[in-house]
Design a protein around this nucleic acid. Structure first.
Lengths: 154, 154
DNA sequence: CTAAATTTAATTGTGTACAATCTTATTTGG
DNA sequence: CCAAATAAGATTGTACACAATTAAATTTAG
């Protein structure tokens, strides 16, 4: 049983701090990503594609925790910008493969400058960075046990 | 000089972890807030109003780091739901005061159940919660020094 | 083997975010 | 005192998020 009055105050709400922090980081990235004609979620999409070359919409969604309602229109915009190709699978017509174009592949070179330009502004030591990353991922896991439907009962 | 290759991998990106964590928390809150007819940003708006009774749009924006482009339409929706009143100031016609209605005030009672229902799912000890909150707020401060225009030179 | 269930994307509709611009009101400097 | 600067909200346009639904393809169970 928590002290509800205490945790209802804005200054004590961890969820608000995380939400605000997320938006501040996006704000930091925005002008730099703008030079690459990218938004932050588009950059994340390229990040997973740089690691895997070719993924279905569903597989991208599993990695970024986004659904087709978000991804489909975003991927279409990225296709218009000639960063990715959308290829309907021939073995399974339900699937759409997302592949990097040459332009999308080359963007990685410019994106390599991002960490250096951004991470120092987090104001974290290398160790704090790692610990915070670990904590966040643990929290995500915890939360997903509640927020994601349990289909793995089979 | 950071190892850019390392920090470009999705699993090593703290910004992604924070962004994903923020969305997972919102997902945890959503069904509970839905019972109060609230979205998460609307809940935050009520949170600051419960603390201050009456604030201008600008003052709400300063606390939540949101601008009028976000707040104006949201506050209008909340007015439609009879949670707040929008009152143009008579001393300074540029300002619009946001005040709680009776309904908006009473929602606090139900909102008091939120911390108990949600925070345990974070999977954090009371101490980890406090430390994480502190770290996040520190990061926000650091980031704002870069992302927010410096007007306080005067 | 086929009807029902499941899977994958796409679509629809609502609600943020936020840059950029606009409008109106107030403040300030000459 | 008044024109220029500034300030507060509103508006416009673009891009996510995400629930809910739809459409089409594939799997599965009887």
């Amino acid at each position: 049983m928590l002290d509800a009055e205490y945790f209802l105050r804005l200054e004590n709400q961890l969820c608000f701090a995380i939400y605000a922090c997320s938006r501040e980081i996006t704000r930091l990235y925005r002008p730099i990503l703008e030079e690459l004609e990218l938004t932050y979620p588009q950059f994340l999409t390229l990040t997973v594609l740089w690691e895997h070359q070719r993924l279905t919409v569903k597989e991208i969604g599993e990695r970024l925790y986004l659904d087709s309602g978000t991804l489909t229109p975003m991927l279409k915009r990225m296709e218009t910008l000639d960063m990715v190709k959308r290829v309907r699978s021939s073995e399974d017509e339900r699937k759409v493969y997302i592949e990097l174009t040459e332009k999308g592949t080359k963007l990685r070179d410019q994106a390599l400058e991002l960490p250096d330009k951004c991470i120092p502004h987090f104001g974290l030591s290398r160790n704090d960075y790692k610990e915070l990353l670990f904590q966040m991922n643990q929290m995500i896991e915890h939360l997903q046990q509640v927020t994601r439907p349990i289909n793995e009962v089979k």
